[in-house]
């Protein structure tokens, strides 16, 4: 009984639309900035007396010294470079070299620079993304992140910064870390704030509806419209030719229960990570975000397809005053391989 009361009370609490817009805009700005300026966030210069920790290589094999790796590090962060200890451990596969350049520990955080260089072609570019294909195995509870910090056109080398933060109060010293990558995406295409050339009023008739097992969803009014794990969505149609994004199909626009649904499909999404989102612009140019969105998956003979449906709370009789816009990212190339480097964290005496 208390649970029901507590749930009822909480369902009335959600962030204001203005707050959501603000946070989404900040996130989007940060993303855009990250892509346009490959510059390391200024590193805190360690104070005198900082206990310097180094990485020693667990396996005996050392890679040949790679000039590009050191140049990259000094270019990225000359002030912090002095605290990093060279690791010089690399792994080559499929014509691509992954090298752990160097690393250092401070507090409960390990920072590790890793470079990936295409030795045979131009598969690595400034949009190279390891997405979900990399893993960082370590023996302690921690959170980790990996992001591109530098790309050198001349050597076709992308440098990534891995940050591992230990969650507990333990010490990372002596712990082994294995960083591995099994594939990466590159040559990405960014479609930012593009207008989708569709005539929204022509979709005001009710679309064909199906009930699906939703794999997830979100948005301010998501819970009101999601019954356990099932949801009503448009029946996917043929991809619309007007949609200008290669790698994402626009498979439906229509009204269900008085709300505008816009559906996209991404075939083999686990292999390309193509994604995006829609929003509306009213006659005054104000952005209107989706009321909620949901995901569902279809697995047929032609493989897995990931669907996303954006739902807008705009009545059909008012939709003529709105235009459909969106932001999308698609990958142009996917490269597979097996790159793996293991090293051990040790304290420098």
């Amino acid at each position: 009984m208390f649970r029901e009361k507590y749930m009822h009370m909480n369902h009335q609490i959600f962030p204001d639309p203005e707050l959501m817009d603000q946070v989404l805009k900040s996130a989007h700005d940060a993303e855009t900035r990250k892509r346009k300026i490959f510059r390391l966030i200024p590193k805190p210069v360690a104070a005198a007396g900082l206990i310097c920790l180094c990485i020693s290589v667990a396996a005996p094999t050392l890679a040949a010294t790679s000039d590009f790796a050191y140049h990259a590090l000094y270019q990225i962060s000359p002030g912090a470079a002095q605290f990093f200890i060279p690791v010089q451990k690399s792994d080559d596969d499929n014509g691509i070299r992954m090298e752990v350049i160097s690393a250092y520990l401070h507090g409960n955080t390990a920072e590790i620079y890793i470079a990936m260089q295409d030795l045979t072609g131009d598969r690595i570019d400034s949009s190279t993304d390891l997405y979900d294909s990399y893993s960082i195995n370590r023996a302690f509870d921690s959170s980790a992140s990996c992001r591109l910090v530098e790309y050198d056109e001349a050597t076709k080398t992308a440098t990534f910064l891995i940050m591992i933060q230990e969650q507990g109060s333990g010490n990372m010293e002596g712990d082994k870390i294995t960083f591995s990558v099994r594939e990466f995406l590159s040559h990405k295409n960014y479609y930012e704030n593009i207008e989708i050339p569709v005539d929204l009023p022509s979709f005001t008739a009710g679309g064909r509806v199906q009930t699906v097992a939703a794999s997830g969803g979100g948005g301010m009014y998501y819970e009101k419209h999601w019954n356990e794990s099932s949801a009503d969505t448009l029946v996917p149609g043929q991809p619309m030719k007007e949609f200008p994004v290669d790698g994402i199909d626009l498979t439906g626009i229509g009204y269900i229960d008085g709300r505008l649904h816009v559906q996209t499909a991404v075939p083999n999404r686990l292999e390309n990570d193509n994604h995006g989102f829609f929003y509306l612009k009213d006659a005054e140019g104000n952005d209107v975000n989706e009321a909620y969105g949901l995901y569902f998956i279809s697995s047929g003979e032609s493989g897995r397809v990931d669907y996303h449906e954006s739902v807008f709370d705009i009545p059909a009789e008012e939709i003529a005053a709105y235009k459909l816009y969106g932001n999308f990212v698609t990958a142009g190339m996917r490269t597979e391989g097996n790159w793996r480097v293991t090293f051990q964290l040790e304290r420098e005496k």
Binding site: A27, G217, G218, G293, N327, V329
Partner: peptide, 11 residues
């Protein structure tokens, strides 16, 4: 896509 994550976990 932080946008998706933010929308998903906002509530």
């Amino acid at each position: 896509c932080p946008d998706h994550v933010i929308r998903f976990y906002s509530n």
